[in-house]
Design a protein around this nucleic acid. Structure first.
Length: 290
DNA sequence: GCAATTTGACCCAG
DNA sequence: CTGGGTCAAATTGC
């Protein structure tokens, strides 16, 4: 892999995002550190989101081999590509060609939250599968003429595997939803309990509906706990998927990762100067230690 | 009453 | 004709 290739930049972005996440985790583990340091927790969280978004953009924009057609890195799409459809009045003129399926995500659980708000618009029995497929489009489909869609279907029972396939690109404002969500992270974390968790600011976005297997359902009570255990589970999950490059990065137990022990000093790993608004300059990741 | 979901009908490519 | 994707009226939930 040549230096500074788009793919390498994407890998660096992901690794940088991981580092930000670890930094944030440590802060949240020690509530007094919640707003310590030169960069706020909100900026950290936003940086993480941006890193992953841009990495996905890079990976999904580059020409792919057949096996690399789908990425399983994440569920965020911020590629600023033109909207796929021009006139929504007529039925089904959306380009459903080969290039419209951007990536897919196989998960043992339905995806609770992937950074965007989705509205379900259909559900169908699929011939070869015993499970129904659910169809979602971006909630900002009308407001922002956003053509992003996704399908979700349970493709395996034991263990359960939910496959989410993403189509099109979000033309709604990047991080539109995440900004709202992470707003609460900025709030002072004086409560010792909340310091252990990230509270998503969207209150009861939706009620969970296990019947169809998916719903955008981040409940206030069901806080997302960032822990090493979760990271390990994620690595395990992703390690079974066929994107070898991603597997190399994500499933590596320790080799590709900086040591995640609590002994490391935060400043040694996290360089606040690397937080920047213009995320086009990925070369700045070269300054990072990896 | 409004907004989101459900579900049968409709559309269309193969 | 068939299967998959979408529409839109009906239903549900807040």
């Amino acid at each position: 892999m040549e230096m500074n290739s788009p793919h390498e930049k994407a890998v660096k972005a992901i690794l940088y995002g991981h580092s930000c996440a670890m930094t944030l985790k440590r802060r949240l583990d020690h509530s007094k550190m919640a707003e310590a340091g030169p960069v706020s927790s909100y900026e950290l969280a936003k940086s993480i989101v941006d890193c992953f978004s841009n990495a996905i953009s890079i990976l999904s924009d580059k020409p792919k081999s057949e096996d690399d057609q789908f990425s399983v890195l994440s569920s965020r799409d911020s590629s600023p590509l033109p909207p796929p459809q021009g006139s929504p009045s007529k039925k089904r003129k959306i380009d459903n060609t080969n290039s419209s399926a951007n990536w897919r995500d196989d998960s043992p659980d339905p995806i609770y939250f992937d950074g965007y708000l989705w509205r379900k618009y259909g559900q169908k029995c699929i011939k070869k599968s015993e499970h129904q497929r659910s169809y979602y489009r971006c909630s900002y489909n009308i407001d922002h003429n956003c053509g992003a869609r996704k399908h979700e279907q349970k493709i395996k029972d034991n263990p359960p595997v939910y496959r989410t396939t993403y189509f099109g690109h979000h033309t709604c404002k990047t991080n539109h939803n995440l900004d709202a969500i992470f707003t609460s992270v900025q709030e002072p974390l004086d409560d010792s309990k909340s310091a252990q968790m990230i509270h998503f600011g969207v209150k009861d976005l939706k009620k969970e509906s296990p019947s169809n297997g998916f719903s955008l359902s981040v409940k206030h009570e069901e806080d997302i706990i960032i822990s090493e255990q979760n990271m390990d589970q994620y690595r395990e999950t992703t390690s079974t998927i066929n994107d070898q490059d991603c597997q190399h990065v994500l499933s590596s137990p320790s080799g590709s990762y900086p040591p995640s022990s609590s002994s490391g000093s935060e400043s040694a790993e996290f360089d606040p100067d690397l937080l920047f608004d213009n995320l086009d300059s990925w070369d700045r990741y070269d300054q990072f230690y990896f």
